[in-house]
């Protein structure tokens, strides 16, 4: 596994992962492991996955992202997918992949704002 290829930054209680390279099997697995280890070690209320740098998301990558979101959820972290490109959205929908259950936002700012609304409610604040 090639750990650390996808940078994970911390903004307060939120983690920001920016996927800017093609997600090959090894990289995808490492990314998933990195995210989950970080949550386990330091905790996180929210996770933003920025895919604005991806010009293609096939069913494999879509599944990795959705799975990572579900795994993070089990650890109490809410995931928001941000920055999907128009052609990527159209392609996923045409394939029949609407990624239900995954929260989305146009950009990182909107993603943070969305987490700001959702997280306190979920944590009973």
């Amino acid at each position: 596994m090639i750990r650390g290829q996808i940078p994970i930054l911390r903004i307060g209680t939120t983690l920001l992962a920016t996927i800017h390279i093609e997600l090959r099997d090894a990289v995808a697995e490492a990314f998933q492991a990195d995210v989950l280890t970080t949550i386990e070690k330091d905790g996180a209320a929210g996770l933003l996955i920025d895919i604005s740098g991806l010009d293609i998301v096939d069913s494999y990558v879509a599944r990795i992202i959705a799975e990572t979101g579900r795994m993070a959820k089990l650890m109490g972290t809410t995931t928001v997918l941000v920055g999907m490109r128009p052609e990527v959205a159209a392609t996923l929908i045409r394939m029949g992949y609407s990624m239900e259950g995954v929260l989305t936002a146009l950009n990182v700012d909107d993603g943070l704002e969305l987490l700001g609304h959702i997280v306190p409610k979920q944590r009973g604040a």
Partner: peptide, 12 residues
């Protein structure tokens, strides 16, 4: 419906 679903993926 498809257009709506795609718009949602963008975050809108």
């Amino acid at each position: 419906l498809k257009t709506t679903a795609a718009v949602r993926l963008l975050g809108a």
